[in-house]
Design a protein around this nucleic acid. Sequence first.
DNA 1: CGAGCTTTTGAACGCAGTCAACAATTGTGG
DNA 2: CCACAATTGTTGACTGCGTTCAAAAGCTCG
Lengths: 247, 247
Amino acid sequence: MTVGSHPPYTLMVRKLESIFPLSAEEKQALHDLPVQVMKLRADQDIVRLGDRPFQCCLILEGYTSVYKLTSDGKRQLMALHVAGDIPDLQSLHLPVMDHNIATLTPCTVAFVQHRDVHQVCERYPRLTAAFWRSTLIDASIFREWLLNVGRREAYTRIAHLLCEILARLRAVELVEDGNFDLPITQAELADATGLSSVHMNRVFKALRADGLIQTKGKRIFIPNWEKMKEAGDFDPHYLHLKVDDAA
Amino acid sequence: MTVGSHPPYTLMVRKLESIFPLSAEEKQALHDLPVQVMKLRADQDIVRLGDRPFQCCLILEGYTSVYKLTSDGKRQLMALHVAGDIPDLQSLHLPVMDHNIATLTPCTVAFVQHRDVHQVCERYPRLTAAFWRSTLIDASIFREWLLNVGRREAYTRIAHLLCEILARLRAVELVEDGNFDLPITQAELADATGLSSVHMNRVFKALRADGLIQTKGKRIFIPNWEKMKEAGDFDPHYLHLKVDDAA
DNA sequence: CGAGCTTTTGAACGCAGTCAACAATTGTGG
DNA sequence: CCACAATTGTTGACTGCGTTCAAAAGCTCG
């Protein structure tokens, strides 16, 4: 089952190809996976801590995030996911969710049964490697976020996050000329960086004042990528992109 | 090749079994993997950022850690690994290292060629799942650390780290009665929690004053596990241990 | 056009960092 | 086994980055 004009897997295949070479046959096998497409509003949980999902969810449109809460209710985002990503691929081999996944914006997502993924992986063993690698890159990104939150001051930390978003959107060709949509709130960016929303706002102001970013509504423009990378102490190697889209 | 009295794989098998059921045949296959055993001093890098390793390293004895540095030299530890762990399993499918792995204490490690791991996984596909799951649990731990560093205050954060160490040592039966060896410095614990060593020291003092921990040299005793879990906002689910060793 | 977010700004506070000195412990060579 | 060096742990004083609380100003969208 596919969705009207945009076959749901185009972006996923593009994403997987950005990290792993796929044959035409393998790509076709991915395209042929049966899916169920759904539209979700913003701020909806897709899966919750403790769940035992029997399917994976593929983002076709919108932003989602992985998050956890402390017992006193503070929220930390652990990852942002964009079109083409499969945020809960790990549920294939870890039955119980240890975190939540929620939409940050209205989203279109496609659900694929674990059973079907396991089948296609058995038939095309290189897909196992591709999916495994994808989960390993997720882990690499967690590590970089840990460095970011643990050891970089707020200004650098936020610049780094913006660099990562730009680099990852480039890999799925959603950036034109340093411009991209970031339809999420400053409070959410604060939760992603372990800061308060007030401080996030102040640092944003400073980044604008320093000419590193320009904002127009939810659209962000980064005029000087080299300067921005330096401000964010950003080295894209941890994203493990085959083509260095971030250069 | 094995090492004298302790076959190198006993602990790894014990560790893998704590997260994945293995058949006798699969265990034997792991035992039969050829390895090269080495002793390393403390503070030695095992692999470095940018390396392209052709082997995995299995800890037989001692503590190692995954770490990264910011461009201005601040260090963040991302994980601690103990006997039985394979800290760089991910190099099987991510050719270029995006982080460093170093010994924190003198260590005995066994190196296994990627080639041999791939072979045994082909022959026993369930081992692929076991190893994959192991890397997914590593990622789950990164997520919890991110929550810890991003959203918990120093006191809770340190208590949480100590809880995790205890729970993981229990899984490989290296804890007796709430007592365990933690032969790493406060400065290293500080790097693991994103704090300064001075503050680490002050919080340690507070934890002692509150009766949550007792220290004697490098030996730590946690008299009241329930209280400690509460102080550390610790819920062991994220470790995905089959048997709930942490209860 | 008004309700409800989201962004922005100010003021005051506090957790944790830095710097510096000293004590305790561990390791090493003689 | 002791003496000395080096590392690790401990404490105090001061500073500062980022938080909290509160209120106002801008947006967005029925």
